[in-house]
Design a protein around this nucleic acid. Structure first.
Length: 493
RNA sequence: GGGGAUGUAGCUCAGUCCGGUAGAGCAGCGGCCUUUUAAGCCGUUGGUCCUGGGUUCGAAUCCCAGCAUCCUCACCA
């Protein structure tokens, strides 16, 4: 029954265990059972206001029950004020020795961080603080770990991520971000359901990876004795569903890319992908704006959002700019003038000698244009060779019917008029562009091409980076602050 | 992978430039306290100064290497 994980147990923990033992001596279960009839802190505040309870008043007839974590504790010997935190906010409970009598010994076992339930009459103190004057105190969970400093909270970024469970209850702003994240996702889902889209799930474990240019994670299935990849994109499976006639599908897809980590990149991230049969990338622009409007409305605060040093204006329609025009504007080069582009590339630190033309063009674009795209902008019509999954412009085979959405210098979304010609698709898969890194090459997926051979309707398809959208709408400049548990190295011994 | 910054008590941080007994606040413990708001007052416990080497009579402090985190660049259609 007793086992000690720590040889040298911390004094603070030992003290808490002493109180835990004391509670048991007093016949109190430190880890209580289900409780019914709990009111939220916010509901109690509303009730006090509605009843017009004034400073110094107490209504014995109004019984309230609240539960939460002890985040502040002010003990004055025979009277104590304790601040409980629940998911709606904070509420103060008052504990008086002459009321609780023998239970007072239990109060003396209270520590910061404990989870308790308090039942009692509603009141407001002289200083105007809404208070539950407690007649019954129930322990729900004794906290054995000492909480962070009560005023500064948990600041150490590393510790915040490693102990997100602590971060969340100590720093209310953090919880707020993740509540907003949930609302954003719900709003987008609602927007798509309303448009008769079907939410689906496709494999994370894939025998071949595709749908993006990225290095995959590899894994292995024992029983089948086969190597598998964690998906870098759900694209090729969602398109199979278009072949199958589902016509409008979407997936909030966790993708995995075995690449660099930065404030804008986490190895696993969430991307919304959606496909609409009989549509094209113009439909995707319209639906992108609609989803972002829904997300804006769901989070409140209007169309102008602070983000770091910038203010982003999200009122649609967003700017629509041709890729070639932007390249001309910011790099001063015509997209068709490859020698000029190559001359530009060198001074920009791009090693263009090993790159195919289209790769050079895009490298220059990324370097010269993207840092200027602060306000939401659809960049239209990409060089065809870097778009193996995109339909070509029927009037200009060098142009792909694709847009990327940028905001705050980040790529937020990516959409195509989807390529549905299996012969062109097979050809694109077999083209090896130089300069893109061997492991990120599009991999020939015969099974997918064969699916196209059954006939896929023309369609618009869109990928929208959910983490980055949440960053923009919650003013978090690091992706780790919108992902509950960002990947970190384990702490070394 | 390159560059910069940070790492000291459970937490938030001083101390490092200029080497000489390890500091504060909060938390904890003991005492006083029935209307507090980061409660207050008195007393007090608590340290692998990230790790390992080196220089030195002496290193949290200087040097070297490593580890972790953050920022930035590169990479990432």
């Amino acid at each position: 029954m007793f086992f000690f994980r720590r040889i040298a147990m911390d004094d603070l923990i030992r003290e808490r265990i002493r109180k835990l033992d004391r509670l048991r001596e007093l016949g109190v279960d430190p880890y209580g059972q289900r409780v019914q009839g709990i009111q939220s802190s916010a509901a109690v505040h509303q009730q006090v206001a509605r009843l017009g309870i004034g400073p110094g008043d107490r209504l014995e007839s109004e019984i309230a029950m609240v539960a939460g974590r002890v985040v502040l504790l002010r003990d004055m010997g025979k009277l104590a004020f304790v601040t409980l935190r629940d998911r709606r906010g904070d509420i103060q409970i008052g504990l008086a020795k002459n009321v609780l009598q023998t239970t007072w010994d239990v109060v003396k076992c209270l520590d910061m961080g404990d989870v308790v339930c308090a039942k009692g009459s509603l009141g407001r103190t002289k200083t105007g603080e809404d208070t539950v004057w407690t007649t019954e105190l129930t322990f729900l969970a004794k906290s054995l770990q000492p909480p962070p400093e009560k005023w500064h909270g948990l600041q150490d970024v590393d510790l915040r991520y490693r102990r997100r469970h602590v971060d969340l209850y100590v720093n209310p702003d953090v919880r707020q971000v993740f509540e907003l994240r949930s609302r954003i996702i719900q709003a987008i889902r609602g927007c798509l359901i309303e448009r008769d889209y079907l939410e689906v799930e496709t494999p994370v474990l894939q025998p071949l990876y595709g749908g993006a240019a990225a290095r995959p994670f590899t894994t292995h299935h024992n029983t089948l004795d086969m190597d598998l990849y964690l998906r870098i994109s759900p694209e090729l499976y969602l398109k199979r569903l278009l072949v199958g006639g589902l016509e409008r599908v979407f997936e909030f897809a966790k993708n995995f890319r075995n690449e660099g980590i930065s404030t804008k990149h986490n190895p696993e991230f969430t991307m919304l992908e959606l496909y609409q049969a009989y549509g094209d990338y113009h439909d995707m622009m319209e639906i992108t704006e609609a989803m972002i409007v829904a997300a804006i409305e769901a989070t409140g605060g209007g169309y102008e959002r602070p983000f770091g040093e910038e203010t982003i204006h999200f009122r649609p329609p967003f700017a629509r700019r041709k890729y070639a025009d932007l390249l001309n504007e910011y790099a001063g080069v015509d997209m068709t003038d490859v020698p000029a582009l190559r001359r530009k590339a060198g001074p920009m630190g791009i090693d263009q000698t090993k790159m195919d033309d289209a790769v050079v063009i895009n490298a220059v674009f990324e370097k010269a244009v993207e840092p200027n795209l602060v306000q939401p902008t659809f960049v239209l019509d990409y060089p065809a060779p870097i778009c193996p999954l995109t339909k070509r412009d029927p009037h200009d085979p060098l142009t792909a019917l694709r847009f990327e959405l940028f905001a705050a210098r980040m790529e937020l979304g990516n959409a195509y008029s989807e390529l549905n010609d299996p012969q062109i698709q097979r050809e694109n898969f077999s083209k090896q562009l130089r300069g893109e890194g061997d492991e990120t090459m599009a991999v020939m997926d015969e099974d997918f091409v064969m699916a196209l051979e059954y006939g896929m309707p023309p369609a618009g398809g869109l990928g929208l980076g959910i983490d980055r959208l949440v960053m923009l709408l919650t003013n978090q400049t690091s992706i780790r602050d919108v992902i509950l548990f960002p990947l970190q190295r384990p702490v070394g011994k």
